[in-house]
Design a protein around this nucleic acid. Structure first.
Lengths: 220, 220
DNA sequence: TGTGTTTTGTGATTTTTTTCACATTATCAC
DNA sequence: GTGATAATGTGAAAAAAATCACAAAACACA
């Protein structure tokens, strides 16, 4: 079974969102509907769906429930994925409060911070613990997954510490590139980069900011 | 001048982050260093850089300052881009507090919400105004760019209202796909999709969550 | 001055992704 | 029933992206 490419995963997740929210009261959905909502080619939608092993019905499209479940299965939404958040600032707090995570199996165990004013607090039922506890937490709970949500300037130092404590995987929400040993993995969640992808080309007038956008999804 | 592809923009933004934080005290940088930090092919780095019009020096690499400025220029970091945030919940608050935005020219004018408890407050010096003010704000300030940071269930209704008020561009932070008229553009900032891109394949043990990861960036 | 090494810049090739095109078939209208 | 239609599924073609490979230049150092 070939591993799905990033692009396919991104699109499948969006198809799932469509089934979950946009076309919630339809029990059938066609590749044309999905393609139109996202500005894609309809045959591409069909090929993506075929990768999930779902068969459609001629003249009727796909069964929404079946497709939704198949995507969840294929992408592993129902499997629990435990994570620590490092950084209990605005971003860490927002992530700890992000209720949608649990629909996708992402389980935030607790937050860690080195600010004494924050330690001991609870955010959405999750404790804020001192960063020094990381090592014992990692060994006790056996979860080596970190969401990094600290200020950019501290990102490298905190990463060095987390790696030393045994962190194996870092989902980096800071706009930095980290130096890490080969056995550790980083995934860059770079909001700025996303923004720039839509902004595309330097333009002059401050009010027409988005005027030279790439039409990523939505409309041709 | 061809428009840069998303992938190139994403990589250039990461190169910029490297110059800004990771290799801050080096005044020269080679394509090999950048490629190693990000797990890329070094010739790809050189081709990306060539798109910014920067010439390197044989045996020495690129001038860091020159490269950094060229990326900023090419991607338009220094141009002001004004935006309204709709939704003053945890996510909207985090975005309003995201100090890095201003380094990239993103200027948040104010937040809008329909919760009376939130209206009138200030978040990082930005006022929270009633959602009903959107129409007059858009026409007064002539900025038609919206960051959508409301709960998923309200995303479509709020979008419909924003579009009616004249919104032209929506940076959608909710995990939903929106129905919008052809003249409006949406860019999906789907955190879940990013997560799933790194998570790749369904696996069984909850603690080994990230074990089948795609090594997106960082290491080969 | 000459030799070896490092690093750029870029054509050529390969791989991946997207788009096109169309045969096939289930359903609906009549 | 029968014919028209709307959808799927999928090979083939085209486009885009990544990788390879190497000439050329600049520097280090003898």
């Amino acid at each position: 079974m070939p591993v799905l490419s990033d692009k396919v995963i991104h699109r499948l997740t969006l198809y799932h969102c469509i089934l979950k929210y946009t076309l919630i009261n339809q029990d059938r959905v066609s590749s044309f509907e999905i393609a139109n909502l996202l500005g894609l080619d309809n045959s591409q939608v069909r090929k993506d769906i075929a990768l999930c092993g779902v068969l459609g019905h001629k003249k009727q499209g796909y069964n929404s429930t079946e497709l939704k479940l198949a995507i969840e299965q294929k992408l592993g939404f129902k499997e629990t994925k435990e994570v620590f958040i490092i950084g209990a600032g605005h971003l860490g707090t927002a992530l700890a409060n992000y209720t949608d995570f649990k629909d996708y199996g992402i389980d935030i165990l607790c937050l860690l911070d080195n600010n004494p004013n924050k330690i001991g607090k609870e955010i959405n039922g999750k404790k804020v613990l001192p960063l020094e506890d990381l090592q014992s937490l990692i060994s006790r709970v056996n979860t080596k997954n970190i969401i990094l949500a600290v200020p950019a300037k501290q990102a490298q130092a905190v990463t060095d510490y987390a790696v030393q404590c045994g962190a194996q995987f870092i989902w980096n929400f800071t706009p930095t590139v980290l130096k890490i040993p080969k056995n550790v993995m980083v995934y860059y969640e770079n909001i700025i980069s996303s923004f720039m992808q839509m902004y595309k080309e330097p333009i002059n007038h401050k009010h027409t900011i988005f005027s030279r956008l790439k039409i990523m999804k939505g409309h041709k």
